[in-house]
């Protein structure tokens, strides 16, 4: 005669008792099925335990030597100084650069205005560069730059897969196109206003 565990016939879900719901597999079964199961069971084997350690990094400096600064590098006003090393890609320029400098000089990272101004500058930057690309003879090509040609080669899997994002794709052209339409309308309005003077 086998003895069932006391809770086996109890229909009460374990969560209403002290018991933890039973697992479907034992540790031995898991070890046999999963390569490396339990290899890091001991937290001491986990490289990010504890969170803070006395790190040996290979640095042979306390404060790194300063990278030369060419021009005024923008920085967060929460920084006490320009960091010793920094990226030099795409320095500030034009109207987008002025907006970005305003965001960095006036608002801490804690303010929404800091981030909203940077996002606005990103859109201005796009318009500036579209115009520049036309002037410099290397115009943007929406067909190739959006990679839409991939649809021809790989597009079949988009359909019939039950993807939930297909639902909002109907509004995507509106959302993505609206800033361009708004920009064009604003430009037309400005031109008309100037022409009337």
């Amino acid at each position: 005669m086998t003895t069932e565990p006391a809770h086996a016939a109890d229909p009460t879900p374990p969560v209403y008792t002290h018991r933890k719901p039973p697992l479907r597999e034992t540790p031995d079964q898991l070890r046999a099925r999963i390569p490396g199961w339990g290899a890091d069971l001991d937290p001491a084997d986990r490289p990010s335990y504890p969170r803070e350690i006395d790190a040996d990094t290979g640095a042979h400096w306390d404060l790194p030597e300063r990278q030369p600064e060419h021009g005024a590098r923008e920085r967060s006003i929460e920084h006490m100084m320009l960091t010793p090393v920094f990226g030099t890609a795409q320095p500030l320029h034009g109207l987008s650069g002025a907006i970005r400098r305003y965001a960095y000089q006036r608002h801490s990272e804690g303010k929404a205005m800091h981030w909203l101004a940077l996002l606005a500058a990103d859109r201005v930057d796009v318009v500036e560069n579209v115009a520049r690309s036309i002037v410099t003879g290397h115009p943007d090509n929406p067909l190739t730059e959006t990679g839409l040609t991939a649809e021809l080669r790989h597009g079949r899997s988009r359909f019939g897969s039950g993807r939930s994002d297909l639902r909002h794709q109907a509004v995507d052209p509106v959302v993505n196109g609206a800033p361009w339409v708004a920009g064009a309308l604003a430009a037309a309005w400005a031109v008309r206003r100037v022409a009337r003077r």
Partner: peptide
Amino acid sequence: RGLFSNCHNVNPN
């Protein structure tokens, strides 16, 4: 302290 992803000397922005 091992928090390499939080370095304070590399991102002025």
